[in-house]
Design a binder for these strands. Structure first.
Lengths: 241, 241
DNA sequence: AGCCAAAACTTGTTTAAACAAATTATCCCG
DNA sequence: CGGGATAATTTGTTTAAACAAGTTTTGGCT
C-alpha cells in the first residue's frame, strides 16, 4: 500500500474516476472540499491532482475547476505502459505468457556496441535472447543486455522465469527509470526464424535503457513485437510559450 | 519567456545539462546550494527538479543527491514529442514540410463514428484528409476531425498552411492535452495511392484525441507514417509497491 | 431590466517551517 | 587502528500562509 498520503489520495480519486463516481466531462470537487474530505493540506491534494493530470485523467482550468477527461479504452491488444516485466504485462492483459531462451552468454562491450547501447566500452555484459509466447504463439523477440557487475549469477532458469523478479527480490536492486524509443523496422532473418509473423514484413520495435536506484544504467533492451500485438498509450501537453 | 520562476530554473538547469555544465553520471548541486544560487525557496527548486526527472534528465536518490542521466540522442529520423503541428515538427527536424489537401467536408457523427472517435453522436465535424510531404516526398497520411462548433470557418487554404496556427492565433482557442495511441497497421489502398511506401506493407499509426482549455475534446486525429520516418521517445518509471 | 462594481470562489505560484528517512562524515573510545 | 555511536548532510512528505490571477456570483445603482 502507498506509504505517502498524496499517493493514497491519488489512487482513491483515480478509482472514483474509473468507476464513474466522478464522470467524464464533470468537475472534481474543489480543492477546499477535497481538503476537508481527505483531512489534509492543499498542497497534498494538489500533488495528487497533478499526478492525475500527468496520467491524462483530469485537466485543471484556472479559476474554474478540475475537469475529468478520462475515457475508458476498450483495447484487446497487448498494451505497454510503465516499466513492467513481460510476465506482468501478460497477466495485466489476461494472456498466458511463455518464454524460450535462445542464447545466454557474456561478452565485452566494444566501441560499436557501446555506441549502440550506451554501455561504457570494456564493460562485461550478459547477452540474452528470448522468444516470448502469448497464448502459446511466438510473437515477441526480446534482446537484453545486463551489466554482469550489477546483475551477477544469471542462469537460463532465471531467464525463463523472470529476470526482473530475480533482480528485485534476490539481488535486492531497485529499478527506477527507463528511457525508451519506439520505431518500426523491417523483419530480420531471426524474426522469421523464430516468430509467427503472418504476412507482416515489419515489426514494432522498442529499444530502451534502464537505470537502477543509483542512477546507473544496468540494462539495454530491444523488444520486437508483431504489429497486431502491440499498442502504446501516451498523454502529451501543449508547450506554453 | 517563462512566467513562473520554477519554469526558468527548470530551463536553466536543462540547458546546463544539455551543454554538459552538469555532466551525465554526476550529481546536481544539492537543493540548499541551488536555493542560494537561484534565490528561491526549496519547494521551487524541487518543482524544477521534478520536471527534469519527468523528462528523463535526472533521477533523485534519497539521502544522496540528484544524478544526471541525460544522454543526447542522435536524431536522424522524424521524432515525435509533445503536441506539435506538422510544420513545427518538420522545422525541428530540419526538413522541408509540404501539404496536399485531399478532402475537406463536414459530416454528422453517427453511432459507429462516435465509438471510434469519442465524439458525441449527432455532433457536426470537419473531415479533413491530407498528404504530408517531407523534403518533397509523400510520407504521411493525415486524417483530422474537428468539432465545427469550436473550429468554425475552416478552408482548404488554412488546411494547407496550419490548422493549429488558425485555431490558436485566429480563433484564440488554447490547446492543452492530447491522448495518443501508437500502433502498427497494414497499409491500405489510400496509403498506396498517395504515399511513397517503398516495399513496406505496414504503417506506424498515431491516433489521438485533443482537448482544449475548457477540457472539451475538439479534435480526433489519425496520422499514418511510413515506418522509416517515424520515431517516438518516452521515459517511464517503475511503479512502487 | 440592464449595467457595473464588488465580493466570493476557483486554481496557480511562492515562501517558510517542521519532521521523516536515507546516506555520509565525524569523532570519541577502547 | 578499528568500531560504533553521533552528528551533519541529503532528499521526501506534509502543513500553513500569503498573494496572484481567472471566473462566477452577488448586489446595488441607474
Amino acid at each position: 500500500m502507498p506509504r505517502a498520503k498524496y499517493q493514497s489520495i491519488y489512487q482513491d480519486l483515480k478509482a472514483k474516476i474509473e468507476d464513474s463516481t466522478y464522470e467524464s466531462g464533470e468537475l472534481l470537487p474543489s480543492e477546499n472540499v477535497l481538503i476537508t474530505q481527505y483531512d489534509c493540506s492543499r498542497n497534498t491534494v494538489r500533488r495528487a491532482i497533478a499526478s492525475l493530470a500527468e496520467d491524462g485523467y483530469v485537466q485543471s482550468m484556472h479559476g474554474i475547476g478540475v475537469r475529468v477527461i478520462y475515457q475508458p479504452s476498450a483495447q484487446t491488444s497487448f498494451i505497454m505502459g510503465g516499466i513492467e516485466s513481460f510476465s506482468e504485462s501478460a497477466e495485466r492483459n489476461n494472456r498466458k505468457p511463455g518464454t524460450r531462451v535462445l542464447q545466454l552468454t557474456t561478452l565485452t562491450v566494444d566501441a560499436r556496441m557501446s555506441k549502440r547501447t550506451g554501455f561504457p566500452e570494456g564493460e562485461e555484459v550478459w547477452f540474452l535472447q528470448r522468444v516470448r509466447y502469448l497464448d502459446d504463439r511466438p510473437l515477441i523477440l526480446d534482446l537484453n543486455m545486463f551489466l554482469t557487475r550489477l546483475v551477477p549469477g544469471l542462469t537460463p532458469e532465471i531467464a525463463e522465469h523472470s529476470v526482473y523478479d530475480y533482480i528485485e527480490n534476490v539481488l535486492g536492486m531497485t529499478i527506477v527509470t527507463a528511457k525508451r524509443s519506439y520505431t518500426v523496422e523491417r523483419i530480420t532473418e531471426l524474426d522469421e526464424k523464430w516468430l509467427d509473423l503472418g504476412s507482416y514484413n515489419c515489426m514494432a520495435v522498442i529499444t530502451g535503457q534502464v537505470y537502477n536506484a543509483d542512477g546507473i544504467m544496468f540494462e539495454y533492451t530491444q523488444s520486437r513485437h508483431r504489429p497486431d500485438y502491440f499498442s502504446f498509450h501516451d498523454t502529451a501537453f501543449r508547450k506554453k510559450r
